[in-house]
Amino acid sequence: MKNYIKVIFIIAIINFIELSISNALSKAYIIFPLTFLFYSYYVYKSDENINPIEAFLFGLFVDLISNSYFGLSAILFCLMTYLINIYSNSFKLFSNLQICIFFGLSAASYVGFTQLIVNLYNFSYLTLLVSAVFNIFFCIFIALISMYSGNLINIRK
């Protein structure tokens, strides 16, 4: 329970940071789903499989605090949790670069799907492409930091 509260608290702070920087990044055609990436990292780093109901509730919470449509993040968080749980052992065979590309492309898919729902009239492939590249480089950057300075945040159960 203490761990859940900790994760919810971190998600709320990260979501606040995401909303604060999104205005500046959007001028460079970048959408940076920091909350989604953090959640993916949390599931990836977890020693046990994350419960689907937990994923769904985290998604609903993110929908509430980010003022988006209910169910949007809930679906995507569920899907991401399912994918990571399925490939949790296969990830050990992958290189860090492959894992970074996986998370970067997942973030780009998240951006694409959310843009289709919340910003259909101004959907931009340029934004999607630039965001995908940015997110992949961000994941590589985080992986490099983790490699050379250990885990940034200990969120393991």
Partner: peptide, 30 residues
């Protein structure tokens, strides 16, 4: 620790929650 792949029961829960999320999303949009 080795993580096991989600069992069939959990897969059904995932599927159910994704459909539930889709329904909630549809209701919220409309």
């Amino acid at each position: 620790m080795t993580r096991i792949s989600p069992p069939p029961g959990q897969k059904i829960i995932y599927l159910f929650l994704i459909f539930l999320g889709g329904f909630i999303l549809y209701v919220d949009i409309n």
